[in-house]
Amino acid sequence: MTIDRKTVDHVAALARLGLTDDEKSKLATELSGILDHVEMLSKLNTDGVDPLYHILPLKNVFRDDEARPSDVRDDVLKHAPHARPPFFVVPNVLEE
């Protein structure tokens, strides 16, 4: 499977990544290679194999419904790129 430049543009836009043209070309090649590698799996016969949803043999891991204050707010705000405590501040995201 090949990842073309258009796909790279699309995925980069979704992830809000600003990539240079060189980086995009390089990523298109690398991502195609990764997908080709994984593509080998589709050659295997998986009839009778249950789908795997999780890599660990774990199921039903729960916690009890108890509220516990964490009290990390002020520390996290201190490390935020922009904050006006008690709020985080981000560029305006109102859609045009």
Partner: peptide, 9 residues
Amino acid sequence: PAGTSFVDY
């Protein structure tokens, strides 16, 4: 402030 939004999580 104009041009920004505040976030409450």
